[in-house]
Computed example of a mutant assay.
Amino acid sequence: MSAPSNVAKFDELIHAPIRLRICASLAPLQWAEFAQLREALDVADSVLSKHLKQLSTAGYLRMERIAKGGRSHVRVALTTEGRKAFVGHVAALRAMTEMPM
Results as ranks from 00 to 15, higher is better:
residue 75 R to E: 11
residue 81 E to V: 11
residue 27 A to D: 10
residue 16 A to Q: 15
residue 17 P to I: 04
residue 35 A to K: 08
residue 37 L to F: 09
residue 17 P to R: 05
residue 96 M to Y: 02
residue 64 E to Q: 12
residue 63 M to H: 01
residue 85 A to C: 07
residue 30 Q to L: 09
residue 35 A to H: 07
residue 46 S to I: 05
residue 100 P to R: 13
residue 84 K to G: 06
residue 38 R to T: 06
residue 2 S to P: 13
residue 95 A to P: 03
residue 83 R to F: 09
residue 39 E to M: 08
residue 66 I to M: 09
residue 25 S to A: 15
residue 99 M to F: 01
residue 53 K to D: 12
residue 100 P to Y: 09
residue 35 A to W: 00
residue 55 L to Q: 08
residue 50 K to E: 13
residue 47 V to H: 04
residue 5 S to Q: 11
residue 98 E to G: 09
residue 13 L to M: 06
residue 68 K to R: 15
residue 57 T to H: 04
residue 14 I to N: 02
residue 35 A to F: 02
residue 86 F to G: 05
residue 99 M to L: 14
residue 53 K to Y: 13
residue 10 F to D: 03
residue 51 H to S: 03
residue 46 S to E: 14
residue 7 V to W: 07
residue 46 S to C: 01
residue 81 E to R: 15
residue 14 I to V: 14
residue 61 L to Y: 08
residue 58 A to M: 03
residue 55 L to V: 03
residue 18 I to S: 01
residue 64 E to N: 12
residue 74 V to E: 14
residue 63 M to S: 14
residue 40 A to D: 12
residue 18 I to L: 15
residue 46 S to M: 09
residue 1 M to L: 07
residue 70 G to K: 07
residue 58 A to N: 01
residue 88 G to M: 08
residue 95 A to W: 12
residue 40 A to V: 13
residue 42 D to S: 15
residue 43 V to I: 08
residue 86 F to W: 15
residue 75 R to H: 05
residue 34 F to I: 02
residue 96 M to S: 10
residue 54 Q to W: 05
residue 70 G to P: 04
residue 92 A to L: 13
residue 35 A to D: 14
residue 92 A to Y: 11
residue 77 A to Y: 03
residue 85 A to P: 11
residue 17 P to D: 09
residue 71 R to C: 00
residue 55 L to N: 08
residue 1 M to P: 05
residue 50 K to A: 13
residue 86 F to T: 06
residue 42 D to N: 14
residue 66 I to S: 04
residue 97 T to R: 13
residue 56 S to C: 09
residue 91 A to R: 15
residue 27 A to L: 13
residue 34 F to D: 01
residue 33 E to R: 08
residue 10 F to K: 12
residue 46 S to R: 14
residue 70 G to A: 08
residue 73 H to S: 01
residue 33 E to M: 10
residue 49 S to I: 07
residue 16 A to T: 02
residue 61 L to N: 09
residue 100 P to D: 11
residue 72 S to P: 00
residue 52 L to H: 02
residue 17 P to A: 06
residue 48 L to V: 10
residue 62 R to S: 13
residue 76 V to P: 07
residue 1 M to Q: 09
residue 57 T to V: 14
residue 38 R to I: 00
residue 85 A to F: 07
residue 98 E to H: 06
residue 81 E to F: 07
residue 64 E to S: 10
residue 16 A to P: 01
residue 81 E to A: 15
residue 29 L to G: 00
residue 46 S to Q: 09
residue 101 M to S: 11
residue 1 M to W: 05
residue 97 T to A: 06
residue 87 V to P: 01
residue 85 A to S: 07
residue 73 H to I: 00
residue 16 A to V: 04
residue 89 H to Y: 14
residue 1 M to Y: 09
residue 15 H to A: 14
residue 57 T to G: 00
residue 56 S to Y: 01
residue 15 H to K: 01
residue 48 L to T: 06
residue 41 L to E: 08
residue 64 E to T: 07
residue 35 A to Q: 11
residue 92 A to V: 13
residue 29 L to Y: 10
residue 67 A to V: 06
residue 19 R to V: 02
residue 4 P to I: 13
residue 64 E to Y: 07
residue 85 A to T: 05
residue 86 F to H: 14
residue 43 V to W: 02
residue 66 I to F: 02
residue 67 A to W: 01
residue 85 A to H: 06
